[in-house]
């Protein structure tokens, strides 16, 4: 997997899930959804002919509007389209990041 840029959109190769990169670590990043490498959004066909199934161990799903972070907090993504696969970096599942409940000011 290539280097990630903040703002980049990635789509899952195994479900409808799509994310936007909020923060990315330096260097190459191995980000997967449902066990399969994610691809740049908008790239037609995704994984091409070879159909990949969701890894049953990584199928909790992602929810639109939720942010997911790696354990070391070097990677953060925003889910912009829900999907059935779970996100992982280097094989470790990403964690859900809570939005702090703030008094609404605007």
């Amino acid at each position: 997997m290539a280097e990630l840029k903040t703002g980049a959109r990635l789509q899952s190769a195994v479900c409808a899930g799509e994310v936007m990169v909020v923060t990315a670590p330096q260097g190459d990043v191995d980000i997967t959804c449902g066990g399969a490498a994610m691809v740049a959004a908008g790239v037609a066909g995704g994984s091409g002919g070879e159909q990949v199934a969701i890894d049953a161990e990584q199928a909790v799903g992602i929810v639109i509007g939720k942010r997911y972070i790696s354990q070391d907090e070097s990677l953060e993504v925003l889910c912009v389209k829900a999907g059935e696969g779970s996100l992982a970096m280097g094989g470790n599942l990403l964690l859900l990041k809570e939005t702090k409940q703030l008094p609404k000011t605007d």
């Binding site: 903040t6 703002g7 909020v22 639109i64 509007g65 939720k66 942010r67 925003l78 939005t99 702090k100 409940q101 703030l102 000011t105």
Partner: peptide, 16 residues
């Protein structure tokens, strides 16, 4: 820049 505004919104507003 977009990064400033998006950071403000994501940090303080729960989607939908």
């Amino acid at each position: 820049r977009h990064k400033h505004l998006v950071s403000y919104i994501l940090g303080s507003v729960e989607f939908a």
